[in-house]
Design a protein around this nucleic acid. Sequence first.
DNA 1: GTGACATTGAA
DNA 2: TCAATGTCA
Length: 476
Amino acid sequence: MSRSENRPSVVWLRNDLRLADNPALTAAASEDRPLVVVYIHDETGDGIRPLGSASKWWLHHSLAALDAALRKLGGQLTLRSGPAARVLPELVDELDAASVHWNRRYTAARDIDAELKSSLRERGLTVESHQGNVLNEPWQIRNGQGEPYRVFTPYWRSAQDRPVRELWPAPEAVEPGWPERSPASDNLTDWNLLPTRPDWAGGLRETWTPGEAGALDLLDSFVADRLADYHRRDEPAVDATSGLSPHLRFGEISPAQIWHRLRGTGASTLPTAARSNVAKFLSEIGWREFSTALLFDNPRLAEDSYRPAYNAFPWGYTVDQLGAVDEPAGVSEVEAWRRGRTGIPLVDAGMRELWHTGTMHNRVRMVVASFLIKNLLIDWRAGEQWFWDTLVDADEASNPANWQWVAGSGADAAPYFRVFNPGLQQKKFDPTGEYVARWIPELGTADYPDPIVDLAETRREALEAYSAVKAASASN
DNA sequence: GTGACATTGAA
DNA sequence: TCAATGTCA
């Protein structure tokens, strides 16, 4: 074969660390050229949000799992680091690549991809982006005026009218480049994604199996064992949720795979209760899609109020006053919240679960967020940043979208007077106290702190603060 | 158990 | 008219 026919194709993986149902990988593999699979660790590109600590831990193990899976198919994962806008063209030059494929992302970093697509195409390469990580592209779901939806229910109704694409099988073999072309790769451990001194990841290792195989196992066990209990998903002591969120975050499984699998349970033939479990679970995939669409249309979702009137909210503490996540906090209240020492059992249990496992039950996330925002009057961005650093499923769209939802400043947000009462929430959703006891062994002893604020009094102050927002929106 | 609180987008 | 997730009197 001539050299020109041997020019390789490149798959640039980002948040799609899987072999099955990976449209970019399938497209590149079908070109019958040597295949180079690359992941670029980019912390400095425009629009890139550097990963939090828990996400870095996950990424390390996910990349290791992907490399092992590729090697079984005869390939390997190439690791490079630096701004993708520079690193990807360098790799293309080095390999004399003929084509580049990737699955789309929807953050501000998509400007990098658009630039790369046009500059590489100008040089004669085939460059294709694919739909791998969402059921629907954000721009495909629009309301009657052709505008993005601002409310979930009509968004999801409209989205569900559209067919979900068929799945792509994993390639049976991943031909590597010719030996003399095998590109150099960084050493994963040199990226220092794992914590050392101290190694705080013990709880994460006990809780999670990052990687595609772990994701598929979890989907299997969810459908087999937990889906039937999904109507109890709001009870944090009950193992009734899928646990798929970090796997979805890193694209170890696609929403299309989940959708087809749930449909494959014969949803239309199931008894009503089971059918509503399936519908409810799929609507959670819908919230992920809705958040992705919100971020697509509002690239500064983690920085700016979605509703401008909320710029008038008189925070007790702003994120600037509190400092960055890993600095010693200057304010004891936010530090008590972060460490699970507020004296409010359900809040502390959730924050400790997060610290230990890298996740927190969804119901409890709402409660701790409401407490930070409405009882401590601390800017939602401070909570968003803490979650970004500590959650293994920290997602650039879902995390700010949901924090803004709780704050009232987001899309489809609750009326401002909705302030969660952690005591009532505990009574409703952890009536036996099993969840709080699991995370607060010293509960009921002198070692457990008194509440750092009075819930009733701070609730009144929050409602007072919201009147500033009402005034601001009335004057607009 | 019920109503009051009373946002605002979508149909 | 109805909405994701609520509270209080």
